[in-house]
Design a protein around this nucleic acid. Structure first.
Lengths: 183, 183
DNA sequence: CTGAAGTTTCAGTAATTTCTGAAAGTTTAA
DNA sequence: TTAAACTTTCAGAAATTACTGAAACTTCAG
């Protein structure tokens, strides 16, 4: 399988960015390929398109599945499995975001919670706990907000984002209304 | 320099999470240490506390500076440089967020922009460009929104986050007001 | 100047992560 | 059953990334 050069440049870029996005080069390439290629692809097609071993494809698919980013399909009269991206671009973004939160924030939150349960035994620990407390509260707020936002429909979220900083005006407006007892 | 066990567990955790947050283990540990430790620390103190070479500390500090996360200070009658975290926990979070956007999203946006400039030459490329277009628009919207939010004061942003999904009610409210020609 | 006290750089080594390919496992059609 | 067609696993090799320590560089007090 030979890729059109525009497609290839996108796929290779995904590979280079892969590790920054939380997976490795070949997993990044695989995901890029599945997104950009209209038809579902079999493991062997992926391994040929990217010049990587069949075993590596298997491991990569597993990884992408753990991120809930790929779907398996079957074609009639064909025992092979065919892979395609799971959900719309929008949904994929949400999933990457969510998974990264789980991997990057949740473990820290739980460590902080544990550490904050015990009393500080000296001045040094007291300061340490103060800092941990601040980090904890920040992460809690952000996590909570993120999960609330995820419950909005794509349209609502889009409206909100397009609103940009204008959202602050609306918050002020709300405050005014509340203060006037009108809401 | 010996660390209290609670401090140590936090520092080691930062090390383990380091690579997920965009730096490596020792850079993560160094940053954790600076955050949790009340006094500014010299390079030699850091290297002793973490059992890493002096040269590694120098490289790590450089890395943290490229993220704008540390500050250098001097003590009277002492030629050593002392390091401490730059800004409040809040500001640090903003900076990590911003730097990661630069490293994880901006390069992709620019690749997509370039690829979208040329006309597709066949059906396969047409589909590819459709996908790239969607990703591009999503990343643009998110990036733009993020930079708008950064312009809000911590207090405003906090209000907004605490509001959670309630923000949708407010958006609806705004729509109503606009439709009634009252705003 | 000089040299002591510090910082930075970087070649080579160590540690970690990723990838391959062959073997083992699974599924299904006949 | 059997065997073909496929998938998964995993030990070891390859590639990448991080770390050390010694040398080079910088700064400054005397």
């Amino acid at each position: 399988m030979i890729l059109a050069s525009k497609i290839e440049s996108f796929v290779m870029h995904c590979g280079e960015m892969g590790s920054r996005w939380g997976f490795n080069r070949t997993v990044g390439q695989m995901y890029g390929l599945l997104i950009i290629y209209q038809e579902p692809l079999s493991a062997i097609q992926i391994s040929e398109a990217l010049n990587i071993s069949r075993g590596n494809v298997s491991m990569g698919i597993k990884e992408l599945q753990s991120w809930r980013l790929v779907q398996v399909q079957h074609k009639p009269k064909d025992r092979k499995e065919y892979y395609s991206p799971a959900g719309s671009i929008w949904e994929m973004a949400i999933r990457v975001f969510e998974e990264r939160r789980k991997r990057e924030i949740d473990p820290t939150l739980s460590l902080l919670r544990d550490n904050l349960l015990t009393e500080p035994t000296n001045q040094q620990e007291e300061y340490a706990q103060k800092q941990m407390h601040e980090i904890h509260d920040l992460l809690e707020t952000v996590t909570h907000w993120a999960s609330e936002l995820q419950r909005l429909s794509p349209e609502q979220l889009n409206t909100l984002m397009k609103l940009g900083a204008g959202v602050s005006k609306i918050i002020n407006l709300k405050d005014k209304l509340i203060n006037n007892g009108k809401v």
